[in-house]
Simulated assay, not measured.
Amino acid sequence: MSTTSYPVKGQCQCGSVSFVLKAVPKMVIACHCKKCQKLSTSAFSITCIVPTENIEIQGELKETRRVADSGNVNLGKFCPNCGNRIYQVNPAAPEMIKFKAGGCLDDTSMLVPTTHVWTSEKQSWVVIPDGVQQFEKQR
C-alpha cells in the first residue's frame, strides 16, 4: 500500500519541465507493447491515468503524433531539451491524460501497476504478479 501524500512534485531529467500531481491516479498501467518498450528503453512503460484537473505542468513541450491500433490519435508531449516523455493524450478525450510518471516524480511509491496491457508483446523474462489484471492487447 502506498504512503504517498499529495501533491507530489516532479520534473523531467533536465528540470526544464516540472509538474505537480495533485491526487491519486485513477489507474497505473504497465504497457508491454513494442512501441512503449522503445519509448521507455526498457521492458515496459508505466502510465498513470490522470484527470487533467489533477495535474499541473509547467515548461515548454514539443509533441509527436501517431495512430494507435484502435484508430485513436495518440498525441505525445515531451521535453524538447532532454526528450523525456511527459504525457500522452487522445485529442478526442482531453479530460484524461496518460502521464508517463516513470522515475520523474519525487515520490514513486504509488507507481504499482494494477493492470498490464499488451502482454502478447512482453519480454519473456518479465514475471507479472499473480492476481494482477492482464490483457494480451490494449483493452
Results as ranks from 00 to 15, higher is better:
G59S: 07
T41C: 10
C79H: 08
Q58G: 02
A93P: 10
Q58W: 04
E121I: 05
A68M: 00
G131V: 09
K26D: 15
Q13M: 12
P91A: 03
R139A: 08
E121M: 11
G10N: 06
D107G: 09
N72T: 04
P94N: 08
D130Q: 14
T41L: 08
Q13Y: 14
S40I: 00
K77Y: 15
S42H: 12
A23H: 10
K34G: 04
G76W: 01
K137M: 09
C14H: 05
F78I: 01
Y6E: 01
G10T: 07
W125M: 03
K34V: 03
H116T: 05
D107N: 15
D130N: 13
T115H: 13
V67D: 12
W118A: 06
A93R: 15
C48Q: 06
K26P: 07
R66D: 11
D107I: 10
S45R: 05
L111P: 13
K137L: 09
R85N: 08
V24Q: 08
H116G: 09
E63S: 15
S40V: 04
I57M: 01
K98L: 15
I128Q: 02
D130P: 10
A92E: 15
S45H: 09
G102L: 03
D106L: 02
L111E: 00
P7F: 00
E63R: 02
P91N: 04
I29G: 00
I57L: 01
